[in-house]
């Protein structure tokens, strides 16, 4: 049944995230085109005199603003994806749709597991799309002379190679810590929405946002205190180990918090649910 739940959750979330992703892709293509146009205009604007130079300067400032706007859209895209994941969770469980979801012949923990896995998949997809579109803009929109920025690509891989050569394990642990942080981010939002909807009779969304901030404050404080102590001990023993330890502690904390948040969420769904 988990597979079927997952299929329907993925499909439902795709209905929102796919159009947003297509819009962001179009935005990235336009941004790349605008950057190329900026190179052409900058050549004209560099002329010391002439009406064309004035016009191109004005036009170029608009192009720059357009590029900034598109980069901003690209950067907020994972957040938009995350919001749509949480909205799907809320709608599918705690609005009228919950009357169907909670009467399916499946275990409550399967419902939550499906929501969590599908949420994680879409969150990771949003990261991959962000990186791919960022790379697209850098490759095709940043060379004044050529359509493809080959020297830029070479420099990028040189830097990546150097980082992986010297700090490979650190980069790996940092990546794991980021991934675990994403797990926790979704689990914490699910917990906040569940508590908000169980506790509040009205203004459930507002209550959920409030609960989310409280959860985040408590967790951040706990993580900071424990990280500080562990990293201080690690630094005293071996200074270079502190960075590794910091990433590992952060990842471990995120995983523990994720499991705890999911367990509390499923408990509340099973025992405290009251669809109005």
């Amino acid at each position: 049944m988990l597979g079927k739940l997952l299929k329907h959750d993925m499909r439902a979330q795709m209905r929102v995230i796919l159009p947003v992703t297509i819009c962001v892709m179009i935005s990235a293509i336009l941004c790349t085109g605008a950057l190329r146009l900026a190179f052409v205009l900058s050549d004209i604007a560099a002329e010391p005199e002439g009406f064309a130079a004035v016009l191109s300067t004005i036009f170029m400032s608009w192009v720059v603003l357009f590029v900034i706007l598109n980069v901003f859209i690209l950067l907020v895209y994972p957040t938009i994806a995350l919001i749509s994941i949480v909205v799907h969770f809320y709608r599918n469980l705690y609005t009228d749709e919950g009357y169907l979801t909670f009467t399916l012949p499946v275990k409550t923990r399967s419902i939550l597991t499906s929501k969590f896995i599908s949420g994680m998949i879409w969150q990771l997809v949003s990261y991959v799309v962000l990186i791919a579109l960022g790379a697209f803009i850098l490759i095709f929109g940043t060379s004044p002379e050529h359509i493809v920025n080959l020297s830029g690509i070479r420099s990028f891989f040189d830097v990546v190679g150097m980082i992986l050569g010297e700090y490979g394990w650190l980069a790996f642990t940092y990546l794991i810590s980021l991934l675990a942080g994403s797990f926790y981010g979704i689990a914490a939002l699910y917990l906040a929405v569940t508590i908000g909807c169980v506790v509040a009779k009205k203004h459930r969304v507002l209550a959920s946002i409030g609960v989310y901030y409280v959860i985040n404050m408590i967790m951040s404080t706990m993580m900071s205190v424990v990280s500080f102590i562990i990293v201080a001990v690690a630094t005293a023993m071996n200074e270079s180990a502190a960075l590794y330890v910091s990433s590992i502690v952060s990842a471990a904390f995120s995983i523990v918090f994720t499991v705890a948040a999911l367990l509390i969420t499923v408990y509340m769904m099973k025992n405290k649910l009251n669809l109005s």
Binding site: D96, Y99, T103, L104
Partner: peptide
């Protein structure tokens, strides 16, 4: 989850997305 497979429930509101 077993009894939910035996029960067909129609609520007083629209529960389909």
């Amino acid at each position: 989850e077993v009894t939910r497979g035996l029960v067909s429930y129609l609520p007083e509101r629209t529960y389909l997305s």
